[in-house]
Each structure stands twice: as structure tokens, then as C-alpha cells.
């Protein structure tokens, strides 16, 4: 099945597959940002693959000079009972990824969470507000350069 997925993706976007990896029979595919929505749309609507469920959407801070963030999409096909991990890499400077809320509405809050924690913007998101932290908070706690105990006075307490 994994070979079949790769085959179909290579037929769809031959130039834009940055890498793929298989571990314990689960496939991870890295694609470039510009074809992300197209690939997602295809994976969902293709009648054979039918990745109709977005299990999770998150990011990883690799903390390196280039391609600092990886945005990870964990997809599931109810028809084939199979998982697929889709990845795109993002630079720190213009950390923007197109939204996939148009493909899976479930992505809405996941993208808000990822924006809140990593500061990655999702272009075209209908309501990109912070999910956990107060709206006036200015930092992104899951970035590797954010101190564990936070930044003093960044979260004001009520007066005693």
C-alpha cells in the first residue's frame, strides 16, 4: 500500500517530493510547501487512498539555522485503516504555511494550537487566534529558545 501511495504522489507532483521514509510499515512523506494543499486535497479525495481523517496537526522545532520548523500532518484512512505522515519544512523568517482547513475542517483548532505554541502562521485560516495562551501574550512557548519557566512579567497576575 505504501508503494502505491508513493507511486500516486510521484505521478501527481514529481518535482515536489523532498523525501520519504518508511518505519514499521508506516510511511512519512515530505513535500514542498507550495503543493501542500494540492497534495492534501488529492490524498483526501482520491477514492483508492481516501485519507478522510486528520488525526493530528502539529509542528517540531528542529532548532537549526535552516528549515527550522517541520509541520506534521498525521492522516488516517478509514477505508484502508492506514496512517500517513505528511511533512513540510518552514524557515524561521517567513514561517507561513497555507491552511488545510478547507480540506479537513478538523485542522482549525490544530492550526490555532500550532500558531500559539510555535508562531507558525497559517495563511487563509478563518480565525487564527491563540488557543491556549492569553491573547495579549507575545511569545511562543514550545519554541526551543523559550525558557521553561517563561519570561518574567510576560503574563501579568492580578494585584494582591
Amino acid at each position: 500500500m505504501n508503494d502505491r501511495i508513493l507511486e500516486k504522489l510521484h505521478a501527481l507532483v514529481p518535482e515536489n517530493i523532498a523525501g520519504s521514509r518508511e518505519f514499521r510499515d508506516e510511511l512519512t512523506v515530505t513535500v514542498t510547501v507550495d503543493v501542500l494543499v494540492r497534495v492534501c486535497e488529492f490524498l483526501k479525495t482520491d477514492p483508492e487512498l481516501a485519507f478522510d481523517m486528520l488525526i493530528d496537526l502539529t509542528a517540531v522545532d528542529m532548532y537549526r539555522p535552516e528549515a527550522r520548523f517541520e509541520v506534521v500532518y498525521l492522516l488516517y484512512s478509514l477505508k484502508n485503516t492506514r496512517y500517513l505522515r505528511l511533512k513540510v519544512t518552514v524557515e524561521e523568517e517567513r514561517a507561513t504555511v497555507p491552511t488545510v482547513t478547507g480540506v479537513w475542517p478538523a485542522a482549525n483548532w490544530h492550526e490555532r494550537e500550532t500558531f500559539d505554541m510555535f508562531g507558525i502562521r497559517f495563511a487563509g485560516h478563518p480565525d487564527l487566534r491563540r488557543l491556549y495562551m492569553p491573547e495579549e501574550f507575545e511569545h511562543h512557548p514550545l519554541r526551543k529558545d523559550f525558557p521553561l519557566m517563561g519570561i518574567p512579567d510576560s503574563l501579568p497576575l492580578p494585584r494582591r
Binding site: P147, L148, R160
Partner: peptide
């Protein structure tokens, strides 16, 4: 919860 999100003692804002 020694973490950025948790108040390290409510005596910081309550008597």
C-alpha cells in the same frame, strides 16, 4: 507543574 503557564503559589495574588 514547574512551568511557564502555572502560577508558582497563589499567595502571589491572594492573601
Amino acid at each position: 507543574f514547574r512551568s511557564y503557564s502555572v502560577v508558582q503559589g497563589i499567595d502571589q495574588f491572594l492573601p
